[in-house]
Design a protein around this nucleic acid. Structure first.
Ligand SMILES: O=c1ccn([C@H]2C[C@H](O)[C@@H](COP(=O)(O)OP(=O)(O)OP(=O)(O)O)O2)c(=O)[nH]1
Ligand SMILES: [Mg+2]
Length: 644
DNA sequence: TCGCAGAGCCA
DNA sequence: TGGCTC
DNA sequence: GCGA
C-alpha cells in the first residue's frame, strides 16, 4: 500500500495509551501517547509507490505518540513536514517538492518547518515546571498536563533555505503562544476519545490482555484484503567434550569423520593480547548462548515441564502471526523457555521465576498463573480462529506468515482452495511445488537416508572435479537422528590455480540426468561471485532394486570460495540459534560475522536499514577455530552446538 | 527506547 | 522492496 | 517480551 493509504489506516486505529502493565514509575512510557499530540505531520518518504516497512514503522511511531499523519499534503492542517528521503543526511528537495505538489521550497508556508526524522525522535517528557529549551505543555485529557521537550526544529531542518521555518530560530521565546497558533484544526482524527486515558491500570488480569497481538488482526484484514489485489499480482584444547551422547537424540555419531578431512589448524599461538580484552567483554555481556554447550542436565527430567509446555504452546501461536511484535515475542519466549527447561528445580513463585535471566515480568506472571491454575488464559486469547488454517498454509514451502494471512482473508480455508486459486489468489511456482509435495516436504528423513543421498551427490560431484571439497552439513553434521533436508557445502582449494567455477551448474545437470534431482526451487545466481551461490531443490534417493518409494527430499547446496570455508562451515553447521548468538556476540565485540568471514569495522547505516555504510575488513574466515578463538568462544564440536 | 543475525533468490 | 528461506 |  502507499504511504498515503497507510497513513489513512492509522487514523482509524485508536491510540492506545501505553499504560497497561506499566507500573507507576515509568512515566516516559506512560505518557508516550502525548509526546507528539497536537502535531500534524506530512511525511515525505520519497517512495513513489508503496510505503516501505521503515516508512510504516515511522508512521506508527508518530501515531502511537499521539501525532497525526496526513494521508495527503494540506497546508491548512499540517504543522510539520518530515523529509525522510533516501539519504537521511541529504534530504532531497526535488522529491519533496514533487510529493507536495509544489514548485519551490518557498511555497511552503513559513510556519511549517521541514524537518528530518531525527527531530521527531527528540521528543522527551520532562518534569512539569522544567522550562528549558523548546518545551510545550500538553494536556493529558484528564485535567492534568505534562511537559514535553524537543529539539528546536531548525536544528534538524531538512533544507538550509528553510531553517527559519517554525519557531525557535531567531527569537527563542514564546512557547506557549506558539502552541496555540501551530495547533492543527485537528478535527481530522475525530478527536481521540477522552475517557480512555483514565485507565490508570490495575489488576494483573487486565495485564496480559492489553498487549495482545491484536495488531495482526488489523493487518490481517486491512492490509491483507488490499494485498489480495497487489498480490494478484587455547580453548581449542580444553573444550569440555562430553561424548556426543544424548544431546540431540543422537545415534552414534562419532564416526562422522568428515570435518577432519579439512585439517583445521588448531592455532593456539598468541594467546594473550587480544583474548584478555575480549574475555572481559564477554562477562559484561552476561553470557552468550554460544559460549557454552548445553549442560547435560538436559537429559534428565525437567521439573517445570508443565510450564515449558504452556509457554511453548503460546510461543507457537505467536510464531504463526505476521507482525514484528510477534516475531520478537517468539525470540524472547524461546530464550526464557530454554532457561526454564534447564532450571534445576521446580519453580514455586513469581519471584523465583522473575530471578531467572530472560524471564521478565510478563512471563513470570504467566508462570504464576500456570502454577496456580494449571492453565494459561493467554493461550485461548491468542488462539484465534484463523490460526489452524493459517498454520496449514504455512506448511506449504514458500508460504510464510503474510501470504498465509492474505489467503485467509481472501476466503481460502483448505489446500484445495489454494489449488483452485479460489478468489483469484496468486500462487508462485515454488508454492505450487510446495503444495504438490506438501507431505513429503513436511516429513523429516532418517539420518541414513540423508547420508545415502549425500553420498550419491558427492560421488557425482567428485567425478566432475576430484579436487572438490564436498561436505554434508546442517543437522546431519550435528549428529541428529533425523534431517529436515540435506545441506551440502562445496568448495575447492585454489592452490593448483583452478577453482570450482561452473561446477554447480554441471553438477545440477548431472544430478538431473541421474534422476536424483526432481524439482528446482531456486537456482544459483553467480552474478556477484562465480564461486558463491545457493541451490535449492527436491531430490530422491538413488534408485534401488525393487523399491517404489520416492519421497521427495529438500536438498540445499551452497558453494563458497575456499577462503571462506571456515565461516561457511560455522554458518552451515548451525544450529540457527547458535549462529544468531555467535553473530550477536561478534557484534557486541565490534565485529560482524557472516558466512563469508569475520569482519571488523563494519558500519551499518544508523537507523535506516540493511545498507552497510562501510564494508569493514575481513579478519578471519579460513577456519572455524580462528573465528571461535577471536570471538572468545570455546571450541565446540558440531554436535555441541545444539541450542534449539 | 532500542535492538534482537545476516544473507540469497524470487516476484 | 517484501517475502521467504537457510 | 526482555535487557541494557
Ligand atoms: O535461519 C537460519 C536457518 C539456518 N541457518 C543455518 C544453520 C543451520 O544449521 C543451517 C542449515 O539450515 P536448515 O534449515 O537445514 O537447518 P538444520 O539445522 O539443518 O535442521 P534440519 O534438520 O531441520 O534441516 O543453516 C541459519 O544460520 N539461520
Ligand atoms: Mg538442514
Amino acid at each position: 500500500m502507499t504511504a498515503a493509504e497507510y497513513a489513512q489506516t492509522l487514523q482509524l486505529k485508536p491510540v492506545v495509551p501505553a499504560t497497561a502493565t506499566v507500573s507507576g514509575g515509568d512515566s516516559q512510557r506512560k505518557w508516550r501517547h502525548l509526546l507528539l499530540k497536537d502535531f500534524t505531520f506530512f511525511y515525505v518518504s520519497g517512495e513513489l509507490t508503496y510505503a516501505s516497512q521503515s516508512t510504516k514503522k515511522r508512521m506508527d511511531y508518530i501515531h502511537c505518540r499521539g501525532g497525526i499523519v496526513l494521508p495527503a499534503y494540506d497546508p491548512e492542517l499540517v504543522t510539520h513536514i518530515i523529509v525522510d528521503t533516501a539519504n537521511p543526511d541529504k534530504p532531497d528537495a526535488g522529491v519533496t517538492l514533487r510529493t507536495l505538489g509544489l514548485k519551490k521550497l518557498s511555497d511552503i508556508p513559513d510556519h511549517v518547518p521541514t524537518v528530518k526524522w531525527k527531530w521527531v525522535n527528540s521528543a522527551k517528557l520532562v518534569p512539569n515546571g522544567d522550562r528549558a529549551g523548546n518545551f510545550r505543555i500538553v494536556e493529558d485529557g484528564n485535567g492534568g498536563h505534562v511537559t514535553v521537550r524537543m529539539d528546536w526544529e531548525f536544528m534538524h531542518s531538512a533544507f538550509v533555505a528553510r531553517v527559519h521555518a517554525g519557531k525557535g530560530f531567531k527569537n527563542t521565546g514564546g512557547n506557549e503562544k506558539d502552541k496555540g497558533k501551530g495547533k492543527p484544526k485537528a478535527k481530522t482524527t475525530a478527536q481521540r476519545k477522552e475517557g480512555e486515558n483514565s485507565e490508570e491500570e490495575d489488576n494483573d488480569s487486565a495485564e496480559d490482555i492489553s498487549d495482545i497481538s491484536c495488531a495482526c488482526r488489523l493487518i490481517g484484514s486491512v492490509v491483507g484484503v488490499r494485498l489480495i489485489f497487489v498480490c494478484s499480482r587455547n580453548f581449542t584444547q580444553d573444550a569440555p567434550s562430553p561424548p556426543p551422547s544424548a544431546k540431540e537424540t543422537t545415534p552414534a555419531v562419532n564416526q562422522t569423520k568428515s570435518v577432519q578431512s579439512e585439517r583445521e589448524i588448531p592455532f593456539i599461538s598468541d594467546p594473550l593480547g587480544e583474548f584478555e580484552a575480549l574475555a572481559k567483554e564477554e562477562k559484561k555481556a552476561e553470557g552468550f548462548l554460544c559460549d557454552a554447550p548445553n549442560s547435560n542436565s538436559l537429559t534428565s527430567e525437567c521439573p517445570n515441564q508443565d510450564i515449558v509446555d504452556k509457554l511453548e504452546e503460546l510461543m507457537e501461536l505467536h510464531r504463526a502471526k505476521p507482525t514484528e511484535e510477534d516475531k520478537w515475542r517468539v525470540y524472547s519466549y524461546s530464550k526464557s523457555i530454554r532457561k526454564i527447561r534447564t532450571y534445576p528445580h521446580r519453580i514455586t513463585s513469581y519471584e523465583e521465576a522473575r530471578n531467572i535471566p530472560g524471564v521478565g515480568d510478563k512471563t513470570a506472571l504467566k508462570i504464576k498463573e500456570i502454577l496456580e491454575t494449571g492453565e494459561l488464559r493467554r493461550i485461548d486469547i491468542e488462539y484465534t480462529e484463523d490460526l489452524d488454517v493459517v498454520h496449514l498454509f504455512q506448511g506449504i514451502y514458500g508460504v510464510g506468515q503474510h501470504i498465509a494471512y492474505m489467503w485467509y482473508s481472501a476466503g481460502c480455508r483448505t489446500l484445495d482452495d489454494i489449488r483452485e486459486r479460489k478468489n483469484g489468489i496468486k500462487v508462485s511456482d515454488v508454492q505450487e511445488i510446495g503444495l504438490k509435495y506438501y507431505d513429503d516436504i513436511n516429513t523429516r528423513m532418517p539420518r541414513a537416508e540423508a547420508g545415502e543421498i549425500f553420498t550419491a551427490i558427492k560421488r557425482t560431484a567428485v567425478s566432475i572435479d576430484p579436487h572438490l571439497y564436498v561436505e554434508i552439513m546442517g543437522s546431519y553434521r550435528r549428529g541428529k537422528a533425523t534431517c529436515g533436508d540435506i545441506d551440502i557445502l562445496i568448495t575447492r582449494p585454489t592452490d593448483d590455480g583452478n577453482s570450482h567455477e561452473g561446477v554447480l551448474a554441471s553438477l545440477l545437470s548431472a544430478l538431473q540426468r541421474e534422476g536424483i534431482i526432481r524439482e528446482n526451487l531456486s537456482m544459483p545466481d553467480f552474478k556477484d561471485d562465480p564461486l558463491e551461490a545457493v541451490y535449492r531443490g527436491l531430490c530422491v534417493r538413488p534408485l534401488r532394486e525393487g523399491e517404489g518409494h520416492d519421497t521427495k527430499r529438500l536438498v540445499h547446496i551452497l558453494t563458497v570460495p575456499y577462503k571462506s570455508r571456515g565461516a561457511a562451515l560455522i554458518y552451515y553447521t548451525g544450529d540457527d540459534i547458535f549462529n544468531r548468538s555467535l553473530r550477536l556476540k561478534a557484534n557486541k565485540m565490534g565485529y560482524s560475522l557472516n558466512q563469508r568471514g569475520l569482519f571488523a569495522g563494519v558500519v551499518r547505516s544508523t537507523e535506516n536499514k540493511m545498507i552497510k555504510t562501510c564494508d569493514g575488513h575481513i579478519i578471519a574466515s579460513e577456519t572455524e577455530q580462528e573465528i571461535f578463538r577471536i570471538l572468545g568462544v570455546p571450541w565446540q564440536e558440531p554436535w555441541e552446538r545444539v541450542r534449539s
